[in-house]
């Protein structure tokens, strides 16, 4: 038994799963489109929230949010289920697969056997689709991988019951109501407005363009406050989040520019192409921030100057992104 599920690799898992699932039901939208409609672009830096004793910087909203927003704005309904009992979680999955329904799920990557080892850590909000069971192996469309993979019963159960932050608890979801003609135009406009609002108007200094400035200020203090080794790790963590598998480069900025180009065409609003160009430039500046950081980590630059220089780059980015979203927030149909 097999269904005609088309696996397409994407940069980011959540967009990829959404795009692949919708595609199965006949709605063809690119990854960038899902990302834009789901308001996937964001920035936050929370010094008190730490992973492995290093503050978390993020270029995206919390896991699951992009999917949820995209579903709401395009009008498709999703059923979700979590299970306390791992065996039940697997039984229910089998039942859905028997009905030829592709099932999305959250898993931890640490025990994901087909993943490259340097990327396997305890991150529990990875998305993939299981779409068939053949000879006791589950066929998996993991958007990060170039081709479909497979896992045994034990392997799949293990990643579905990974422990730690965001423990998935067997969480799975599948499409349940698919709209005939989703209202793409208004979904795009709503998506852009929400992103602009989050990047400009959250009244806490840790988010959006303000958050980038806040981070810049912190970065200036790093070498004195933390010492050479720790400061390098703090700075490195920012770049890891920015260039991590799944961002498509430059902390999703290029992906967002790709979305704006598509939006320009669909909405017949040419000015969005200009904004896409500005967004691309901003992405390039983010890349230069990564280059500067790598130089610091390698120990090739004078410490205090280098951190100030990195902070200056961040300030420049904050100004650019603020300008972009001031224009984007005025978008209308």
């Amino acid at each position: 038994m097999s269904i005609d599920f088309q696996h397409t690799q994407s940069a980011h898992c959540e967009n990829g799963v959404t795009s692949n699932l919708l595609n199965f039901y006949g709605i063809k939208l690119s990854e960038a489109m899902i990302f834009g409609i789901g308001s996937g672009l964001f920035f936050s830096h929370m010094p008190f929230l730490k992973v492995n004793a290093i503050p978390v910087t993020s270029f995206r909203p919390l896991p699951g949010v992009i999917f949820k927003r995209a579903a709401r704005r395009l009008g498709f309904k999703v059923k979700r289920k979590k299970f306390r009992n791992p065996q039940k979680a697997m039984d229910e999955l089998d039942l859905l697969l028997e009905k030829d329904i592709p099932v999305g799920m959250l898993v931890g990557v640490f025990h994901l056997t087909y993943f490259p080892a340097p990327y396997r850590f305890h991150f529990n909000a990875h998305n993939l689709v299981v779409y068939a069971k053949e000879k006791d192996r589950y066929i998996i469309s993991d958007p990060i991988m170039e081709t479909p993979e497979s896992l045994s019963y034990q392997e799949l159960q293990r990643v579905r019951y990974a422990k730690g932050t965001f423990a998935p608890k067997g969480h799975m979801y599948w499409a349940h109501e698919i709209p005939e003609n989703p209202d793409l135009k208004s979904a795009i406009v709503i998506g852009i407005k929400k992103t602009a609002k989050d990047m400009l108007h959250i009244p806490v200094p840790m988010f959006g363009a303000k958050g980038i400035r806040f981070l810049a200020k912190q970065v200036r203090k790093y070498p004195k406050k933390l010492g050479k080794r720790k400061a390098g790790q703090y700075l490195g963590q920012i770049v890891r989040a920015q260039e991590e598998i799944g961002t498509g480069g430059a902390g999703f900025r290029f992906m967002y520019a790709a979305f704006l180009q598509e939006a320009a065409e669909i909405l017949q609003q040419d000015w969005l192409n200009d904004i896409a160009r500005e967004m691309t430039e901003t992405g390039d500046v983010w890349r230069s921030f990564a280059v500067e950081t790598a130089r610091i980590v390698k120990g090739r630059s004078k410490l205090e100057d280098a951190y100030n220089q990195a902070a200056d780059i961040l300030m420049d980015i904050a100004d650019r992104e603020e300008k972009i979203f001031r224009k984007l927030e005025k978008i209308n149909l």
Partner: peptide, 27 residues
């Protein structure tokens, strides 16, 4: 990894990449 980049006509496309030095250094 797919990376978003501009083609000859200034339109976005994805190009697969095996890595990038600054990122490798940091990882």
């Amino acid at each position: 990894e797919p990376c978003y980049a501009l083609d000859e006509n200034g339109k976005y496309t994805t190009v697969k990449s095996v890595g990038w030095d600054p990122k490798n250094v940091i990882i």
